[in-house]
Design a protein around this nucleic acid. Structure first.
Lengths: 146, 146
DNA sequence: TCTTTTGTTTATCATTTGATAAGTAAAAGG
DNA sequence: CCTTTTACTTATCAAATGATAAACAAAAGA
């Protein structure tokens, strides 16, 4: 396969992943949280504990705006701030109990949708899918260490 | 592998794809187009010609707002409306010359980033990645026919 | 100790976005 | 024809978001 075709395959794949996951989050947007806030919560869920700076970096939201959104999320009791005892400038953010519950619900809903999509696959196919995920995750869609 | 672990792998993979592609588009946001508008342009690029209703459906933007954003994009000369001669209510949207140029630049930039990520992979590995992409694209991250 | 740097906050403002109500024009259906 | 449906548009308003300036307190460095 020539290189151009290969990259088109990659780009079109990434686009599809976006479309599929967007479709999943459409129903989710449960409470009165916005999409930006949902994105932040997801990031916290997979990377906690995180500092405000890390959220700002990874979600591409300026520090002042990150601070504002986290404040709102804390007011909604979905996450909590903990001051680092070693460096009292730092604030570690974690999901609160309620936040954990919310995110778990959402992940379960995503699971259900994925399950629907791959229902009918044999054990062998599931294995292949698992290996394909590992391969792409490590070789192409790895996330830089922070 | 148990089912729970399998889905966690899927979710974490989808999250990584999001993070990686978000990182790509951060530099892109070249002209004075917003992220929403960029999303619309990307959708047009891969699916053109599209109607306003299709954009509205797939991007989850209400018709009035879709209409407004397309109007802005047309004013910026990035896309064009063509009335369907068969059904004069329908408006087909396509990228304009400038729009094609813009999207090509962006796709090339994405290609370059992907290339950097998989540089050093042997032909055999490239083949494996290609097959993994096909597998996941058809079995898991397929996009429903419209 | 004094200055600089780092991590975060507050405040303010313009712009973008989302939601809704009310419209137009063309096609489809009776 | 006349009514209904479809595809889209215009207008308006509140809310969310992005960008910027200015502040603060703690830590690091001179």
């Amino acid at each position: 396969m020539d290189q151009k075709a290969f990259f088109q395959k990659l780009v079109s794949f990434a686009t599809s992943v976006h479309q599929v996951t967007n479709e999943m989050t459409k129903d989710i947007k449960s409470d009165d949280i916005t999409l930006v806030q949902y994105g932040i919560l997801q990031y916290i869920a997979v990377s906690q504990p995180v500092t405000l700076s890390e959220i700002s970096d990874c979600q591409r939201i300026s520090m002042p705006n990150t601070s504002r959104e986290i404040k709102k999320l804390c007011e909604k009791k979905l996450c909590e701030k903990v001051t680092d005892p070693q460096d009292r400038r730092k604030q570690y953010i974690r999901l609160s109990r309620d936040g954990e519950v919310l995110m778990n619900e959402d992940f379960n809903r995503m699971e259900a949708i994925f399950l629907k999509r791959i229902q009918g696959a044999s054990d062998k196919e599931m294995d292949e899918i698992g290996r394909a995920l590992d391969l792409l995750h490590t070789k192409v869609f790895y996330v830089d260490a922070r």
